[in-house]
Design a protein around this nucleic acid. Structure first.
Length: 920
RNA sequence: GCCCGGAUGGCGGAAUUGGUAGACGCGUUGGACUUAAAAUCCAAUGAACAUUGAGUUCGUGCCGGUUCGAUCCCGGCUCCGGGUACCA
């Protein structure tokens, strides 16, 4: 019987669906295993061959865990809110809900063809009110919580209010916004309710505040830091400017230290952890106050190098700093104001492009050096960022590169206080001695920092402090297609809806555009207010809102009473294996960890970290085909001959190229301008060149998994994607290679059939050679799967089939375990053969074959014999032979004399079961 | 600039703990089967030299070191990929 994969694959996909083969039970005596793929956003373009890579890997692992007796949770769903659908809606007028559900249907059908073992009963969609009820719920919890730095966890706001009532802010150690002020219990109790609300806003984990935001005019919305790359929006590549707006934010900065420390316990790649560490950006330093001369004000600066204070020759304020206005001397007002206006209006992109241009302006005011009392000029310059530290710095040009450039530009003095070369640039090494610095002179930098910090505290002008680069996450988007905030406004202050009023459903609007007054699209919705007439929030939540707790919802997706039932959460705990792209390292993976820690603090979930093991699959790159047109003609020259001509390379659709040979007829039909193309051939064929680049429509190198599943079957495609190379590595796609896997699959199939094409397996006892092949394979496949080395596992199956082919093995005792072994990789094939072998139930719940080392024991070993490290010949010895015996055999071997050739044997090294090395 | 990866045949890659470099697959070449093609099967395939008994030399980005032995460890460099970018 032929290997009819279309029929086989359709049959078993239907079977798994009907039987609910991969339904995960929420309580089970079996151990749990949770395998998760990163939430896909279903774009209109559909899948290309690179997308399923991670899904195939996680599916293989999930199926493997089933075979190992685990109760496996392997769900799939869709991140369905988001900008692309809304942009498309603006262009076409189609409701984003419509296009999104079409895209999901397309995505699901493509996924289904590949035979994934998902529990589809748990599918979630972020745009479904039944789902986003819990996104809104989490927001309400964050609105109603503060962060206690004493116990290092979030707590209900009611606790903070009680505390204010009894002791005000006295002794409070809480994460709060800049500008929060201290007060007594009496002062609190005297405040109006509105005033109290304003105070509380400084402490809420979800809070509303004026913040500098990344405003993207083209998208008409603000963006989070991780949604901006190089001053352009990640979606669409539009310019972004900085702007102050009233926005919802999440106080993720309160979690910076825990997010950093938590990384140590996770099984993530070093690079993924490193990206997060850099993003969190912890730096230890000191805050120091400088008195401004002839003013009552002080300037607070943050520095990581308090040891260099004696080298401070000027100070710099960020243009956005509130102090600029206050401190500027009247004589310099005009100059400063015009500089500040310019700096503030420039887009991030412009600012970045001008990094090399050193600009700044003197305020006319001086601060007093805290130790030597000398006046220090105060400047304003855009190289100091408002959002980091205190928005002001003490400049030490001798030991900071940026300050050095600035001092040079404006001829400011450079005073050296660390021993090192500053003739060409700043000397910023910390492994050096302090000089010229009063009481810290002679100390090593690290010691000097410690001593200085103590001194600052003693003098009451500073203290040591840890700063983080991580900013609070801006949580409002002025867009339509997202979760509405469960918030209404009364007298300009936000109030939460009651939990029972959730979900607050997204209203219909007449257009997905801002209103004429410039309000977000929800401003168009009629009746967008409470029954009492209080208006609802007009912004919606960002894309990361819906994806920050979806892994929890999968545990208990149908529960309408709680995000996830406590007992269910206690069973599934956390994600054991998470597979997805590295591009989420600074966005989703930080937000989800934060969100999870918050829910953990309030006791809603049992694990502090959500994703124990993370694997970032590499990108599948496109392999573009090129043809070479001779300039000024319509003649194309084959790749090998192109050097003799003046040519322009052109991309050609990879689907009309096979094995780098161009189908010239199809090429002429491809596009009208090529209909009269002429060719200069090599040996009668046109060879294309190739280039490895991103898989993208514009390079005509997109390969569709549906086409390949049609031609070779899903099992072949699955195995080929794995065979391509290590999961985490980027690698180019080359459709040619799939033939090799297809040949292998058919060879595998044929082992179960006789010459007449009938299913035929023998019940004879297997030979020791056959058992050896089987057990060698079990061992290797298991080891490979455990270390996520799927490419070598596929090779192992190929070797196994080649060897069993040589042995002409068709014994049930070998083929049956092999069928189970291959079932995670080629599940349809395995299921078909499993049933042909007479089983009634699914192979997916069979037991993974147990490796028996006894079958691999060898009596002899063929030693490679090397002389000074160069292998010369082989020598077969008994496995049990002692090293001395082996050495004896080598010395007496007929070939040995030839390689010793005149020299003398100094030593013979015998590594039992490995190698023999003769040293001459 | 800083941080993190990586570099092995014509191509994708293997070598898990310092022990036979190039598994497996693609491609290429030759052969078998066939009227022919496809499919299938067999053989060869790192390079150079030599040559038909075999062999010899070189070879895992480059230079050096440690070791009986290095793709693997150490020092220095080159190139490629990713992250980040005035973060004080």
């Amino acid at each position: 019987m032929d290997y009819r994969f279309r029929e086989i694959e359709a049959r078993w996909q239907q079977f798994w669906q009907q039987e609910k083969t991969f339904k995960a039970e929420n309580s089970s005596s079996a151990p749990k295993y949770y395998v998760l793929d990163m939430f896909p956003y279903p774009s209109g373009a559909g899948l290309h061959v690179g997308h399923p890579l991670g899904y195939i890997a996680s599916d293989i692992y999930a199926r493997y865990k089933w075979l190992k007796g685990f109760n496996v949770l392997h769900p799939m769903g869709f991140d369905a809110f988001g900008l692309p659908a809304e942009q498309y809606a603006i262009q076409t007028g189609q409701h984003p809900a419509v296009t999104t559900s079409e895209n999901i249907a397309q995505y699901k059908s493509q996924l289904s063809r590949l035979g994934f073992a998902y529990d589809w009963d748990r599918e979630v969609r972020t745009s479904d009110p039944f789902y986003y009820k819990w996104t809104q719920w989490a927001f309400l919890k964050m609105f109603d919580a503060w962060y206690d730095e004493e116990t290092n966890r979030a707590r209900p706001l009611s606790e903070l209010i009680n505390r204010f009532k009894s002791q005000g802010t006295n002794g409070l150690n809480a994460a709060r916004s800049a500008g929060a002020i201290d007060f007594s219990a009496a002062e609190w109790n005297e405040m109006q309710a509105e005033q109290q609300q304003q105070v509380l806003m400084h402490y809420r984990i979800a809070y509303l505040a004026d913040t500098m935001v990344n405003w993207c005019p083209a998208l008409g919305t603000v963006l989070a830091n991780d949604e901006v790359k190089d001053g352009l929006s990640e979606r669409g590549g539009h310019p972004v400017i900085r702007k102050s707006m009233k926005q919802w934010s999440l106080r993720i900065s309160a979690y910076a230290q825990r997010l950093l420390e938590g990384l140590d316990s996770l099984e993530w790649s070093e690079s993924a952890k490193e990206i997060q560490r850099n993003w969190i950006g912890r730096s230890e330093g000191a805050v120091m106050r400088f008195k401004v001369m002839n003013h009552e004000f002080e300037i607070e600066v943050f520095t990581t190098r308090p040891d260099t204070i004696f080298g401070c020759t000027f100070m710099v304020l960020a243009p956005e700093s509130d102090l600029v206005k206050t401190l500027t001397h009247p004589d310099h007002r005009q100059e400063v104001e015009s500089y500040v206006t310019d700096a503030v209006n420039r887009s991030d992109r412009e600012r970045m492009a001008e990094v090399k241009n050193v600009t700044g302006v003197f305020t006319g005011t001086y601060a007093a050096h805290p130790f030597i009392g000398e006046p220090i000029p105060i400047w304003v310059a855009d190289y100091v960022l408002a959002g980091y530290g205190t928005g002001a710095i003490m400049a030490v040009p001798a030991h900071d590169t940026r300050d050095y450039a600035f001092a040079r530009q404006f001829s400011l003095p450079i005073v050296q206080v660390i021993d090192g070369d500053i003739s060409e640039g700043a000397f910023d090494s910390k492994d050096a001695q302090v000089i010229n610095s009063g009481f810290i002179t002679g100390l090593h930098v690290k010691e000097a920092i410690r001593v200085m910090n103590l001194k600052l505290e003693e003098m009451g002008i500073g203290y040591s402090k840890v700063n983080y680069r991580l900013r609070d996450a801006i949580f409002s988007r002025q867009r339509y297609w997202g979760e509405p905030f469960p918030v209404y406004y009364r007298d300009g202050l936000p109030y939460p809806l009651a939990e029972e009023q959730l979900p607050l459903e997204l209203p219909e609007v007449d257009a997905f555009l801002p209103t004429e007054q410039g309000d977000p699209p929800l401003g168009r919705a009629t009746g967008w207010h409470t029954p009492e007439g209080y208006p609802f929030e007009l912004s919606t939540m960002p894309g990361f809102a819906g994806s920050s707790a979806y892994y929890l919802r999968y545990m208990d997706p149908l529960n309408d009473n709680t995000l996830v039932d406590k007992a269910v959460n206690a069973y599934w705990q956390d994600v054991d294996l998470y597979i997805g792209g590295m591009e989420h390292a600074t966005g989703h993976l930080i937000y989800a960890r934060f969100w999870n820690k918050f829910l953990f603090d309030l006791g809603y979930v049992c694990k502090d970290e959500p994703f124990r093991k993370l694997i970032n699959q590499g990108m599948i790159q496109g392999r573009s085909s090129l043809v070479y047109r001779i300039n000024g003609t319509n003649t194309f020259v084959s790749c090998g001959l192109k050097e003799a001509y003046d040519v322009t390379p052109l991309h050609v659709d990879v689907n009309i190229v096979s094995n780098d040979q161009l189908d010239m007829e199809k090429f002429r039909m491809w596009r009208p301008e090529f209909s009269s193309a002429e060719f200069i051939l090599e040996n009668g064929v046109y060879h294309c060149g190739y280039e490895i680049e991103k898989m993208s429509k514009r390079f005509y190198n997109v390969v569709n998994p549906d086409d390949l599943a049609d031609r070779y079957g899903a099992d072949t495609l699955r195995m080929y994607e794995m065979f391509l190379g290590p999961l985490e590595q980027h690698k180019p796609w080359d459709t040619n290679g799939i033939e090799g896997v297809y040949r292998f699959i058919r060879k595998f199939w044929k082992m179960f059939f006789n010459a007449g094409g009938n299913f035929s397996v023998s019940d004879d006892e297997p030979t020791s050679a056959e058992l050896k092949v089987l057990h060698k394979t079990i061992k290797k496949v298991q080891e490979d799967i455990e270390r996520f080395s799927f490419n070598t596992a596929v090779s192992t199956f190929m070797i196994c089939v080649n060897e069993l082919g040589d042995l002409k093995c068709n014994k049930r005792a070998v083929l049956e375990p092999l069928t189970i072994l291959i079932s995670p990789y080629a599940p349809h094939l395995a299921e078909e053969l499993w049933h042909l072998l007479g089983h009634q139930t699914t192979v997916a719940r069979a037991e993974f074959p147990v490796f028996n080392t006894g079958f691999l024991v060898e009596d002899t070993f063929e030693y490679p014999v090397s002389f000074n490290g160069k292998t010369r010949f082989k020598l077969t010895c008994a496995t049990a032979a002692r090293p001395a015996e082996v050495e004896e055999a080598v010395r007496n071997h007929e070939q040995t004399a030839k390689y010793v050739a005149g020299g003398a044997i100094k030593k013979v090294i015998v590594v039992p079961g490995r190698i023999i090395n003769v040293v001459i």
